[in-house]
Amino acid sequence: MRTFLILTVDGVTNGFVYAAVALALVMIWRATRVINYAQGAFGMFTTFIALYAISHGVTYWLAFVVALGCGFMLGAGIERLLVRPVESRPPLNVVILTLGLLIFLEALAPMLFGGQVKSFPAPFSRVDLAIGSTQLFISPYDIFVVGAVLVTMVALLLFFQRTSIGLRMRAAAFGPEIARLLGVRVGRMLMLGWGLAAVLGALAGLLIAPAIFLYPNNMDEVLVFGFTGAILGGLDSPVGAVAGGLVVGLGLSYVGGYGGSDLETVGGLIILIAVLMVRPHGLFAARRQREA
């Protein structure tokens, strides 16, 4: 029972990190109808920026804000300079571009920050809490991760459903020509979507770094599991992204804990294949259709 509780808490914590990546993918998909395979690299690069700031005397929270701001500028700048010239081309062009960005950022990071594995500080203790002699198997930092992702999910829901900018962004993604006729500045909306998605990627990088350390390709596996969670929950649903991330996190934790860590990646692949075969539009597909 003790092992099960430990694996469950680990799975929930990791699942919320995967959910943060899944939310970033949902953000970019809802805003631009594009899957950004460099999303993890955005998170890695901005986390290196935060670590650089911290190592030069900046407080953690200021470095946190700086990383999110740099993420926005990185995403918006890439959309304006690189994505926009090919956005009217076949969709495969953008996919290849994001893969190229992944390789470029993972090559640039060690040139600027060094290729060594580095530790990243946590704003709260990672020691498990206890009530008397009863250990809870959850740390203050775990609570922070869960709370940060839940707040992000709610903010994303409200943004797309309750704000005029969110509605214009979705209109620009689904029908750019019609949106232009209605006075929507499609280019600005797409740039904003890329920028906000990069902010979410930066958040995921900051949340996972204290647990897995920081190095140029530390987000590759996290991106795969986050993508699995996004597909599982539905690429158009923030709630589904969080639910999918949790399912993936718990599944991988149980597989790794009881079957060995070597089987975790296989477990993620099995989950992805099962969802694509049984419910390819995600668990929240029917709900999305009703809302539409």
Rank of each mutant, 00 (worst) to 15 (best):
Q289S: 09
Q135M: 05
L200T: 05
L272E: 05
T13D: 07
V21G: 00
Q116I: 02
G205M: 11
L203P: 04
M111E: 14
P280Q: 12
D142H: 09
R33F: 00
A53Y: 10
W61M: 02
L25G: 05
G251D: 13
L157A: 01
F4S: 11
A202Y: 09
G57D: 12
Y141E: 01
A171K: 10
G226T: 00
L51C: 04
I271N: 00
L157C: 07
G256Y: 07
E177H: 08
P238D: 10
G77L: 06
L206H: 11
V34W: 03
G234S: 06
A109Q: 11
A50C: 08
S237V: 00
A241M: 07
K118M: 15
L81S: 13
V146Q: 02
Y60C: 07
L252I: 08
L206T: 06
F4T: 15
N217L: 01
L136H: 03
S139E: 05
L129M: 12
L102G: 08
P121V: 09
I273T: 08
R188E: 09
Y215N: 02
L157N: 07
V65C: 13
R89L: 04
I165R: 03
V184C: 12
P85R: 02
L108R: 02
I178W: 00
G187P: 07
L157G: 06
T98M: 08
V83A: 10
D220P: 04
P90W: 05
L158A: 14
A243Y: 00
A274F: 11
T134P: 00
V224K: 01
G267W: 07
V242Y: 12
D220Y: 08
I78Q: 00
V21S: 01
G69I: 09
G251T: 15
A31E: 07
R180V: 10
A148H: 01
A230G: 07
V199C: 04
I231R: 03
G201M: 02
Y215M: 03
T134K: 00
T228N: 10
I54R: 14
V66G: 15
M191W: 02
E106F: 01
V222F: 10
P110Y: 08
V12R: 06
G240E: 06
T32M: 13
L23H: 03
A171H: 13
A202Q: 09
G77H: 05
Q161A: 15
R288Q: 10
N36P: 06
V83F: 05
G193H: 10
I49A: 14
A274H: 03
L200I: 07
A172S: 12
